[in-house]
Design a binder for these strands. Structure first.
Lengths: 246, 246
DNA sequence: CATTTGATGTCGGAT
DNA sequence: ATCCGACGTCAAATG
């Protein structure tokens, strides 16, 4: 059976299903009125309300309300779940160490508990990432500027790895920092740190820094100018402009 | 009825439930073997597999596998969901504009569909945030250094708002940058931008920058030294050190 | 709207 | 394990 559901279960029955599901690696959802306590990197307390709780076999817990993409409370992968009944409430506790963190959900009313068998899986293929932008630059370095010649990607510097490293037509070292979307001041600072690091490696070589992104904010533009860094606009990856459909 | 569940429903029945649930603002979960296509800020394609799909009345869609805290695909709040049946598959489409984004889930096997009525809600109270750290500093400025006197929080500068602004015992302007956890080089850069901005406001006033955080990485430490910025360690917010019984 | 920054960010990769 | 930067980051506060 791929899905097992209990509707308004007795605690005893819900507990049994949860323990079996946790034991054999099934994913679980529980819905009902509950409170949630979290303690770890921070601490939080959530009063009674209707929430959907998801427990994954990898140790993840998600507590979702009917709003927002983000869970109101959660536990990351690697935790261990336990279910129990105390004070007439069904409880789900999920813990981990390093860092020590603990999440407690206590249901005062449990509407439904479901266990899912997840067998099939496929991988996601994503396009439009910074990696794609780098590939575009490597395919056509003149997108950065005529005469630019990439010599390395992810080149290590004292300030961290540089996206694309190369030389301009005058033989000067060029550091290219890629961003897939409009950037703020922090990207300029980041680029500047790289330039300084490489400048220390090759004193007086005239190291240049070029930020490649769709666009920059005003503040970032000022900062780039002040730091003597260049900005090269690149169009964001083409939408499949297939007006399509309907 | 607070929860409505259909087990291995006919498409027609599932469609009806989805349309009703979308119409009257209920939250929905659907589990089964499906493919997912996304196009918007990036594009992605997800082959057939077992996933839990959550549609919220605020326009959120989450597609979860049995691993990871993060949905493998999603749509943020503000989208509009529609359900349909085409090519013998139950489909859920969620779209929004600005930016134009579209998510399509197509079930080739639908194990269960559930609609939830979410009524109750409470607010989360969280402690241990940067805001808490600021409050601690303001309560006891000597945590930064003896003689430090805060004069403003979120003080505006050309580089953005400064966490805590004040004066040291010699009357020099002090910029305090707070971080709730161990910091890397970017925090040092950020602080440096603030210092430069304030230095431009008060030339030759000897503006100082102090980073307050639990700890810093080696690279950040070097950078701080190089930039002539100070670091003051603060213990992370106390865990309720109630060793507590097992 | 756009900008900026924090987050229990999470995640993946490299050391 | 720590460090580092990307992310379809998200979400809130602010102009």
């Amino acid at each position: 059976m791929s899905v097992t559901t209990l509707h308004r279960p007795a605690h005893r029955d819900a507990l049994g299903l949860l323990e079996r599901a946790f034991g054999d690696g099934r994913m679980v959802t529980a819905f009902g009125r509950c409170t949630v306590e979290y303690d770890g990197r921070a601490s939080s307390s959530l009063g009674p309300g209707d929430r959907l709780v998801i427990c994954k076999p990898d140790g993840t817990v998600l507590v979702h309300t009917d709003e927002s993409r983000e869970p109101v409370n959660w536990q990351p992968p690697g935790c261990t779940h336990r279910a129990s009944v105390r004070d007439g409430r069904l409880r789900i506790r999920s813990e981990r160490s390093s860092p020590d963190e603990r999440l407690d959900v206590a249901f005062e009313r449990l509407e439904q508990v479901t266990a899912y068998e997840v067998t099939d899986r496929s991988d996601l293929t994503l396009t439009g990432s910074e990696e794609d932008l780098r590939q575009r630059i490597l395919d056509d370095p003149s997108l950065v500027e005529p005469g630019f010649e990439p010599t390395a990607t992810e080149r290590e510097t004292a300030a961290g790895p540089v996206d694309v490293f190369g030389e301009d037509d005058a033989g000067r070292p060029v550091i290219v920092e890629l961003k897939r979307r409009r950037v703020g001041p922090s990207a300029a600072s980041q680029l500047r740190r790289y330039v300084e690091a490489v400048d220390a490696e090759f004193p007086d070589s005239g190291v240049r820094g070029i930020l490649v992104a769709p666009s920059v904010t005003d503040r970032a533009a000022s900062l780039l100018e002040e730091l003597d860094l260049a900005f090269v606009p690149v169009a964001p990856p083409e939408e499949d402009a297939d007006g399509g459909g309907e």
